Simulated assay, not measured.
Amino acid sequence: MAIEFNHTIVAARDRTESATFFTEMFGLPAAKEFGPFLAVTIDHGASLDYAQAPEGADIAPQHYAFLVSEAEFDEIYGRIQQRGLQHWADPHGQHPGEINHHDGGRGVYFPDPSGHHLEIITRPYGSGG
């Protein structure tokens, strides 16, 4: 049996703001209502299902990494720059305003409105280069 990722629930301070941010940054269609969630469909039918966190609830930041093409990286990174978003070449934020070149590709980290850590990479880690 092949195992395929289907969905995950993403806690958000404002589910509409976070889902809209994600779809705009990644150039995806608008999120769709699915029960209490706003579902954003990504590749292979998988989705990020944004859930409204209770008022005043602490949201533990999560890390979401996405493998993108070189052209998609350029588009997304362009949006990061246009919006003046903080971004880093590393997960610890020691290289602000930079991208990395791990495995011969490019990568960058940036926050979403709820404080989750988004990462885009053009080569899987450990793929060489």
Rank of each mutant, 00 (worst) to 15 (best):
G27W: 09
F66A: 07
D90H: 03
Y125P: 01
S18T: 15
G84F: 11
Y125G: 00
M1P: 09
D58M: 08
G129P: 05
A57K: 07
P61S: 05
E70S: 08
R83A: 15
Q62F: 10
I120C: 12
R13N: 12
E70K: 11
F73P: 01
H101W: 00
I76N: 08
E98D: 01
F21P: 02
T16Q: 15
A19S: 15
D74K: 15
G115C: 07
H87Q: 07
G105C: 07
T8H: 02
R123E: 15
A30S: 12
D74P: 10
Y109P: 03
H95C: 05
P61W: 10
V10Y: 06
G97P: 09
T122F: 04
A39W: 05
F66T: 02
G93S: 09
V68G: 01
E17A: 11
R83G: 14
S69T: 15
Q81I: 05
T8A: 13
E119C: 00
H63F: 14
A12C: 13
A65D: 13
T41A: 14
I76L: 05
I121W: 10
Y50M: 03
G56T: 02
A51I: 10
F5T: 03
A60C: 04
A30N: 06
A12E: 12
T16D: 09
S47V: 00
S47D: 08
H116Q: 03
P36V: 03
P36L: 05
I99H: 05
H44K: 11
R83D: 13
G56N: 14
N6M: 06
Y77S: 11
S127V: 06
T41K: 15
G35P: 01
P36M: 07
F21H: 01
A46V: 01
R83H: 13
E72F: 11
E119Y: 09
L48N: 02
D103A: 13
G56P: 07
S69F: 08
N100R: 04
L28M: 07
G56K: 14
A57F: 08
F37P: 06
D43H: 12
P61L: 07
N100Q: 03
R123G: 08
A53L: 10
A39L: 10
D43W: 08
D49H: 15
G105M: 10
L85Q: 09
P91V: 03
Q86C: 04
E75T: 14
A53H: 08
F73T: 02
G93D: 09
H116D: 05
V10Q: 03
A89D: 06
N6H: 11
